[in-house]
Design a protein around this nucleic acid. Structure first.
Lengths: 342, 342
DNA sequence: CTGTTAGCGCATTCAC
DNA sequence: GTGAATGCGCTAACAG
């Protein structure tokens, strides 16, 4: 590996950069009032076409670009909305972010993205940081306490994704429906004891999945044990394999696909064949069919969740009022090759 | 699937939301001047501890939150930097984004993220939209023309990732080094004709890889043909398989891992075994060992690229000057199971 | 230590 | 149709 110093080539030329040109300079240069320049950019119809053209030409020449911050301060509308996610590197979120961005763009809004590294403190800090820069906020899989979320919701329009708090508009991906199908699927394959490999303890989805598995298992005369995987990640799943096998279960449902992928690797290391000797189901279906064996998983609807959340937020911002919306997206099991007879 | 209407439950309660409380209201309520409130939040050391405490208490009670937009307008510093990527759903970018965010956070800066959907128009619009909201900008794998980039660089501090323009600070991931190793690897395995499955035509990385393969191949007496894959994606790679096999080549290097993954799927459909009958190398190494067979790939250094870019940007913003930096990150080949003897 | 004053860049009343 | 004045919420001199 080459050292940093060796990689850096630079000349000594220091070019002082110009400060941003303002509306006043354009006005002076064009021989008009500041307000006319402003109008030329926001309501050209109020000016003579020739005046607009002249102003635009001068603005172009001077390299004038409207300052959105100043505009926002004066209008109270900055056209930005914030989106906060716990971990952008988790493949569950990029499609959600993309969909949110697309939906925001349709109404000419920009997305301010925050990544919290699964850290509530960081999340709280970010929300505060967004204050005054965004008109509304979407919190995806928030790790914040109910109280904190309520406090923030009092400050600005707020939509929750995968977090169920009364009185705050929320979009919920109901993995419960898919998880129940997973348990039924495993039961029919003859499995009598399964383990749930749990995710982050402050995750709403984690609680929901754990509960759904327990109740579904009871109906199929299957027993369930829970093995924690601390965080939702590959390594976490991999190290949990020992504990999983120690339970004597013949199948497992993992909190998410990433965890499942780690478990898959851990099982392979211990020469436990899948699905021959052990069956595994993931959640969120973010890996498609790329694992080996291809992972049976519970579908996710993150794209719709992102789209709907932003759509609800824009609606809420427009009406300047909050409705107690609870939008639920159902899921289902996608059967592939990682599950088989016990 | 349940209809949207059915999923939406909401009460009729419309709660009017309060407007943001300002520094003046806090000042009045606390019986101090506005400037004291401002100081309590920005330079508490300038005030008596008891004054600070009193102000803070009142602020807390009123639910005051500093307005960053107003603050930015007055100071000229908003503590935001923009980061624009072509496709957030491409696994190459999340680690880069995460690293950039982490580095920004160390200096208490926030990242404003933009996604362009590989569309230059959208990219141009976003840059304009960021004007005045960010103090600096990082453009990753920009699809903009040199002219547009130069124009924007004149407006604010700007760093490029994977784009090589003279006079504009840039961080380049040199996949050339890794690609050359790939060609050598294939040549040693006896392959005499290989194809390069190209990516987006306006991608700097694509040009760089194509060029590197050609020159390396010449040195090893290997012939190269190029098959286009339009966009960098799974489907694109999958549909290119026909054209790839038609060339009669025995191995291929794909623009990126996503494309390679598609090719892998396409080859499997045609019952062409990998690496038995065909060898394949990816680029960017974003899939780890999860494909089957595990993909031989050229390493990426996106995390470092993100970190370094932000670090350079902050440095540049501080000095209010631009140096002609060209920071190069070397790559290497990661051999796995998708390559074998011809 | 704290209050007073004056902008930051722009949109928006009002007059003309 | 266009210019002059006011204020968005906050920070930064300058006094006291």
């Amino acid at each position: 590996m080459i050292s940093e110093a060796k990689n850096r080539e630079f000349s000594d030329i220091m070019i002082k950069r110009a400060k941003g040109v303002t509306i006043s300079q354009v006005a002076d240069a064009a021989g008009v009032a500041r307000s006319s320049v402003s109008r030329a950019f926001t309501r050209p119809d109020m000016l003579l076409p020739e005046t607009v053209e002249r102003i635009m030409k001068v603005a172009e020449a001077l390299g004038y670009v409207p300052n959105y911050t100043a505009r926002a301060l004066s209008t109270g509308r900055h056209g930005n909305i914030g989106l906060i996610v716990p971990d952008i590197a988790n493949p569950f979120f990029p499609p959600l972010i993309q969909a949110a961005q697309l939906e925001a763009d349709r109404s000419d809004f920009c997305i301010f993205l925050g990544n919290t590294e699964e850290n509530p403190k960081q999340e709280d800090k970010l929300v505060g940081r967004f204050a005054g820069q965004v008109e509304g906020l979407v919190l995806a899989s928030s790790r914040l306490s109910d109280e904190r979320i309520r406090a923030h919701a009092g400050q600005m329009p707020l939509i929750l994704i995968n977090r169920d708090i009364d009185g705050i508009p929320r979009v919920l991906i109901d993995s419960g429906s898919g998880v129940r199908q997973a348990v039924e699927h495993l039961a029919k394959l003859g499995h009598r004891k399964i383990v749930y490999i749990s995710g982050p303890s402050n995750s709403w989805s984690n609680k929901q999945r754990r509960t759904a598995i327990r109740s579904a298992a009871a109906g199929f005369e299957v027993t369930v044990e829970t093995v924690p995987a601390v965080t939702a990640s590959y390594n976490s799943g991999r190290t949990a394999v020992g504990a999983i096998l120690a339970t004597g279960a013949t199948a497992a449902v993992a909190f998410d696909d990433l965890t499942a992928q780690g478990v898959l690797a851990g099982l392979a290391e211990k020469n436990v064949s899948v699905p021959g000797a052990f069956s595994l189901v993931g959640c969120d279906d973010v890996l498609g069919a790329v694992t080996y064996p291809a992972l049976t998983s519970v579908s996710n609807r993150s794209t719709e969740a992102g789209r709907v959340a932003v759509s609800l937020l824009l609606e809420m911002m427009q009406s300047r009022a909050v409705r107690d919306v609870r939008y639920v997206l159902e899921t289902h099991l996608v059967v592939r090759q990682s599950t088989g007879h016990s």
